[in-house]
Amino acid sequence: MTNVSNPETEGETIRRILAGEKHLFHALIRPCERAIYFLLFSLLRNEAEAEDAAQETAIKVYRKLHLFRGDSQFRTWVLSIARNEGLGRLRKSETRREDSLDALVDGEAGDFTPAILTSWREVPAETLERQELGKLLRDAIDGLPENYRNVVLLRDIEEMDVRETAIVLGITEGAVKVRLHRARALLQRNLAPKLKGFAPKGRNLFGWTR
């Protein structure tokens, strides 16, 4: 199975699909699947619904493929379609959790005092099982207001850049940065005390040494 993610290969693949090699669409969409699903899960908060919406999104991307102009990255365009699919479902269902009310508007200062732990690096490691760690992280992210959760998802989980994230979410790059800052501060405050001792040890496991 080949994945296409470099823009030139992508453009060529799209051209060939439009010219009739329909089966190439599988490889075109594959690198975007994860981000599609998790963006929708972040909006819809339900696995089955997110999966159905992800399938619907992939079909819409296929049907609209001739409309893709290449002025943004393909993935950005796909995720905008996914987000619209998710928002459409939320509007219909009216089951939307009003959790975005918990988020501050971008101008407000708010209290983003971090968790203070002077001993992050010195605390002996209490072994956190991988599964346990995963659950802690998922719960912390699930607990964020939606506006922040989406930004964390795209920036820190799917590792999209600020510009792409702003396009997908329909907000300014400044708003992406503000929300990301707050989201990370909330995650740090929630997680740092629980993750004490899970700091990188020995080898440079996490890419940073100080």
């Binding site: 699947e33 999966e51 992800a54 992939a58 995963g134 992210i141 740090q188 996490f206």
Partner: peptide, 29 residues
Amino acid sequence: AVLDSTRNVVVLVADDRVFELPAGFGNRL
């Protein structure tokens, strides 16, 4: 410590194993 712990949180959430697609997701799609 605040910087280190924030960085660690950022690195940890980026780990693909934290967020896994439901089993069979790709096949069904």
